[in-house]
Design a protein around this nucleic acid. Structure first.
Lengths: 210, 210
DNA sequence: GTCTATAAAGGGATAGAC
DNA sequence: GTCTATCCCTTTATAGAC
């Protein structure tokens, strides 16, 4: 693996476990098996620039899970519930780390590191765009899809935090079931967010290509 | 105000803006207008103990908002939607700080500070107990109330994070509307979480006393 | 490009005068 | 109980040999 890849990957891993402030350049160099000077050779912006790249990387990786997890389910509500359940299982199985550092790092640095906050905002806007496109392709009207995407992302980030503290999957199950119920409501109420003609149409690859 | 109160309050404020690792003892002493030695006189456990007390304090304060915000609404779904909307307005009005440090600090230190993680877990369990009691008093069956409480807390914590990054109230509105829709679903489906006999009964002071 | 050594600053914590 | 001075360690970042 290239040196700069090792560095940004190690940063991503440390960010999700310790956050930004607690992750020192020396610890990062050790984790990436690269000397201190090498970090500044590849990233002249130092710690902040490395964190920015790591956030963009992990953000892009994690949004890909959306179609991967939901495509197999013909019933969107069922898929949502299953996806949240699996996220909870994954956390328990890996010892309750955070699954994606974007949320926790954003909470930590939003008021103190304006450049990194803007990076987080870009990543989140990308999530929202891709999510809205996906749920629109799954039959929701664009406004309903946008709102649902916001709700899914908020519930997911919050479930990470709650589960990380409580060490229970309960937040994931509760969030998944609530969101699934909402999707079923949308499907039942005509004109309340579902386009009749393609409500049952699968959205194979709707987001994968973007 | 007593010195130890000034210290824990200042810690709470710094925690929600910068997180745990970035909050230094010296900065804390400055913010609390107390000399360094005074901190260790009142809290022999140092930074960690001060943070623990601050987390418990802010956690206890914030759960009191639940009945305060929801009691005025006879329709629970309407109340949920309004409460989330107000949380979003508050964040915008105050410049997008975190409203409660428990979530963000938990995300930051869960893997690194076991004692503080346990404190966060205690605070969160207290939230869940009080929330379950409240929503039960508002007409949900105990299991539905527990699940709904988990979903509300996860959505709230996640909305904080998303709004902090995006600087938009959209996550609050989306989360509030989704949860409100779910409550309405529960109210419509007989036996699906609402006890018929007291579904409309107000829960004045159900949590206030505990 | 890789790596070492070090500078300059700040961290948490403590001892002890007052 | 209040406050100061200081210890020791780690931090980010750089300079310069290889």
């Amino acid at each position: 693996m290239r040196t700069d890849e090792r560095i940004t990957r190690a940063m991503g891993e440390l960010l999700r476990r310790q956050g930004y402030a607690a992750t020192g350049i020396n610890a990062l160099a050790r984790a990436a098996e690269a000397p201190t000077g090498s970090l500044y050779h590849h990233f002249r912006g130092g710690k902040r620039e490395i964190a920015a790249v790591a956030l963009r990387q992990t953000g892009a990786v994690h949004i890909q899970l959306l179609p991967l997890l939901l495509d197999p389910y013909e019933d969107l509500a069922e898929g949502i519930e299953a996806a949240f359940a699996q996220a909870g299982d994954d956390m328990r199985g890996t010892g309750w780390p955070n699954m994606c550092p974007v949320g926790s790092v954003t909470a930590e640095i939003a008021d103190v590191e304006p450049e990194l906050r803007e990076v987080s905002a870009e990543v989140m806007r990308d999530w929202i765009d891709k999510g809205t496109a996906y749920f629109t392709a799954r039959g929701l009207t664009p406004p309903a899809a946008a709102e649902f995407t916001h709700a899914v992302l908020a519930a997911l980030e919050g479930a990470f935090v709650m589960a990380r503290g409580l060490r229970t999957e309960a937040p994931f199950h509760a969030a998944g079931r609530t969101l699934a119920a909402h999707v079923r409501t949308l499907a039942r109420e005509e004109g309340a967010g579902v386009r009749e003609e393609d409500a049952a149409v699968r959205a194979e690859g709707a987001v994968a290509g973007s």
